[in-house]
Design a protein around this nucleic acid. Structure first.
Length: 568
RNA sequence: CGGGAUGUAGCGCAGUUUGGUAGCGCAUCUGGUUUGGGACCAGAGGGCCGCAGGUUCGAAUCCUGUCAUCCCGACCA
């Protein structure tokens, strides 16, 4: 493609609403343009990159034996009503009505429709195992779209669903997808970590997320370099750490603590450390109220707590008036002593001695509290958020934490949808059985953003060959010099003939402009045709390298073809 | 949905405090000089100052409402 004909509206200045690098660069490089919050259009370069990512996913899905199909994206409400998710999704689903006032939505994910399709179309147990997938635009009315293409309301997703006769079959299908995902993200040049994820209260026997480590990631992950353990915050198992507490069986003491509500305020009031306190938080769990206690320097992990409590809705902090009613005190003075609701106590709190809690009386705290003597915990369990400095639950070495971008999620669904919708089969002996399902998602558009987040420099994107919109850019330094243009054309034609996707910068621009644009849009290899072209010498520069090499024309072409093909 | 901020030319911004005919840089167009890391000179075009009300002789500027966008939080199959 000739740059003079290509729509690449690069920007010198960054639109002010872009915050993270991938967003800024995709805008500056003319990859995308925003239409509304969380809704983007793809210009030619952006579309090419997105298509490359799709193609990698497609090839690896096919290799793993999955079959591609394409479902409708505009779906009648009944699809989701049968599973109850019409209500579960609620405002997160784009809902609309047709001219006859029938309810429809734009598909946010397709478990139901795939399940229904298998019910309708699969006739014999002999057709299992079966894995189907599609690459499709998904719609979710996110409460807060953000970070450019990272979290959007319209995005391309690959979703796959496996159907097996038994758990063993599910394990095999799941492992195939796991391997395929590893290959996909490797081919995309992503530095990723696979973490154990929470599989939710709705069951399912396992779930893993593919995370690209990046400071702009929205998910916290804990990992161990020593043994390879990795889990997201929700799932990561916490081992209690030891702290020093006053020795002996000190007697309980009520202390007046006027206007001291928060842990920070307590720390300065008592002149001690946060771990000497245990905080008591009141939650609403469905229609009842519970209390949860963690050490003062820790945070409650609401997902762990929710799974433990076994409630259906997510936990919510109790309303202030309920806190007053339950504790007989203003918010900030809750404690376990004399509290008449279930108290869930973190493992670490169970090891504390002579510690400080709220007194359930405005303006007072208890000192020298001891478990079992002063109050009896309901349930003792791991309910806190893991932190840097914790020890690895697997090998005991120090755990590290990082932020990650979730690019893929694989999930053993089990029978959740097959039971709800009636996906059964009759086995060899005539027994009716329920089909076991798995689901597997990749945020294709998000992969591009993640790749950019991991690969950029001051001049722009440094895209891996596999995702770059074009492989090579041929730059005649001065488009008016006939000799240079002729040679550049020759190189350009030769590359194209050999299957390399080349750009020719034939614009009437100064060299500096061409170099800046080539760098910005992230083309992996640049061949510059300049003054020395009369001697048959051109410049060969990888985007990842600072310096260029001089090569003969033939050498440059051969090396380019070799380099690109070996990095695809 | 709570908190904060911002809407002025394609992009980045000033002007708003103290009301008086809308400005700068980049980009675009024309002519010329340039040509290896976002050139220079000269000229030109481009605006319902987010939208709607109000106050005023007069509103980008003050008041009210509304919409949109971004950030923090809640939320995120």
């Amino acid at each position: 493609m000739r740059m003079s004909k290509l729509l690449v509206p690069t920007l010198r200045e960054v639109p002010s609403d872009a915050e993270i690098m991938s967003h800024k660069l995709m805008l500056r490089a003319g990859y995308i343009r925003k239409l509304a919050a969380g809704i983007y259009s793809y210009l030619p370069l952006g579309l090419r990159s997105e298509r490359k990512a799709e193609q990698i996913v497609r090839e690896e899905m096919d290799r793993a034996g999955a079959q591609e199909l394409l479902m409708a994206a505009l779906l009648p409400a009944e699809v989701y009503q049968a599973s109850g998710r019409w209500e579960v999704f609620g405002d997160n689903m784009f809902k609309l009505k047709d001219r006859n006032d029938r309810d429809f939505c734009l598909g946010p994910t397709h478990e139901e429709l795939f399940t229904q399709t298998v019910i309708n179309e699969v006739r014999s147990y002999k057709e299992y195992p079966l894995t189907l997938y599609q690459i499709q635009t998904k719609y979710r009315d996110e409460a807060r779209p953000r970070f450019g293409v990272m979290r959007t309301r319209e995005f391309v997703m690959k979703d796959a669903y496996s159907f097996d006769r038994d758990e063993k079959g599910l394990d095999e299908s799941y492992n195939k997808m796991y391997d395929a995902y590893c290959r996909i993200f490797k081919r995309m040049g992503l530095d990723f970590t696979i973490v154990d994820a929470d599989s939710g209260a709705m069951g399912g026997s396992g779930s893993q997320e593919f995370m690209v480590k990046s400071p702009v990631g929205e998910d916290g992950i804990a990992y161990c370099d020593a043994c390879g353990y990795a889990a997201n915050y929700e799932k990561a198992q916490c081992i209690p750490t030891k702290k020093e507490y006053p020795e002996g069986d000190l007697s309980l003491e009520k202390v007046e603590t006027p206007d001291v509500h928060t842990i920070e305020e307590l720390v300065s009031f008592f002149g001690t450390e946060p771990y000497v306190f245990a905080k008591t938080i009141i939650y609403k769990a469905d229609d009842k109220y519970i209390a949860a206690m963690v050490r003062g320097d820790r945070e409650i992990n609401e997902v762990k707590l929710k799974n433990l409590v076994g409630c259906v809705d997510d936990l919510e902090l109790a309303e202030p008036f309920m806190v007053r009613q339950l504790t007989n005190a203003e918010v900030g003075f809750a404690g376990p002593i004399g509290l008449d609701i279930d108290v869930y106590v973190d493992l670490e709190v169970a090891e504390m001695k002579n510690f400080i809690v709220g007194a359930n009386e405005t303006g007072y705290h208890y000192k020298n509290v001891n478990i079992n003597r002063d109050f009896t915990p309901g349930t003792v369990a791991d309910i806190r958020v893991i932190e840097e400095g914790d020890v690895c639950p697997k090998c005991g070495k120090p755990i590290k934490t990082a932020q990650g971008i979730e690019v893929g999620h694989i999930f053993k669904l089990g029978t959740k949808y097959s039971k709800a919708l009636g996906l059964n089969y009759t086995d060899e002996s005539g027994e009716p059985k329920v089909v076991i399902m798995g689901c597997y998602g990749i945020g294709v558009t998000r992969c591009i953003a993640a790749a950019i987040e991991q690969n950029y420099d001051d001049n722009g994107m440094v895209l891996p060959v596999a995702l770059a919109p074009y492989h090579v850019i041929v730059v005649p330094v001065n488009s008016k010099e006939e000799e240079q243009m002729k040679l550049a054309e020759k190189i350009y034609d030769s590359l194209n003939e050999q299957g390399i996707e080349a750009l020719l910068d034939d614009r009437q621009e100064r060299a500096g402009v061409k170099f800046k644009d080539a760098d910005l849009i992230g083309i992996p290899l640049r061949i510059v045709v300049g003054k020395k072209c009369e001697d048959g010498i051109v410049e060969y520069k990888l985007r990842t390298e600072d310096k260029a090499e001089e090569k003969t024309i033939e050498q440059a072409i051969n090396d380019a073809v070799k380099y690109i093909k070996s990095n695809l």
